[in-house]
Simulated scan of single mutants.
Amino acid sequence: MNAYMTNGTYDFLTKLQEKYPKINFFYMSSGSSTLAYYEGQQKDVFAAGREYEAIETNGEVKQSGFIVMNNIPVTDDGTAMFEERFKQRQSELNKMPGFQAFRLLRPKKGNTYVVLTQWASENDFNNWKNSDSFKKQHQAGPTKPPAFFADKPFITSYHMIDPNKN
Rank of each mutant, 00 (worst) to 15 (best):
M1H: 03
M1P: 04
G8Y: 08
G8R: 07
T14D: 09
L16F: 12
L16K: 11
L16I: 06
L16P: 01
L16M: 13
L16W: 05
E18L: 10
Y20H: 15
Y20A: 03
I23Q: 09
N24T: 11
N24A: 11
N24W: 04
F26R: 12
F26G: 08
Y27N: 08
M28Y: 03
S29G: 10
S32Q: 12
S32G: 15
S33P: 04
A36T: 05
A36D: 03
A36V: 11
A36F: 04
Y37H: 11
Y37F: 15
Q42R: 07
D44S: 13
D44M: 07
D44W: 03
V45D: 02
A47I: 13
A48T: 14
R50A: 09
A54L: 12
I55Q: 06
T57K: 14
G59M: 06
V61T: 13
Q63V: 10
F66M: 03
M69R: 08
N70E: 08
P73R: 01
T75W: 00
T79E: 15
E83F: 00
E84F: 06
R85H: 10
K87G: 12
Q88P: 06
R89Q: 13
Q90C: 08
S91I: 02
S91Q: 03
L93A: 05
K95H: 08
G98P: 05
A101G: 06
R106A: 07
K108V: 10
N111K: 15
T112N: 07
Y113H: 01
Q118S: 04
Q118P: 02
F125T: 01
N127V: 11
K129E: 12
S133L: 09
S133C: 03
S133R: 02
Q137S: 15
Q139D: 10
G141K: 08
G141S: 08
T143N: 10
T143G: 11
P145C: 03
F148E: 14
A150P: 00
A150M: 00
T156S: 14
Y158Q: 00
D162F: 01
K165L: 13
N166F: 09
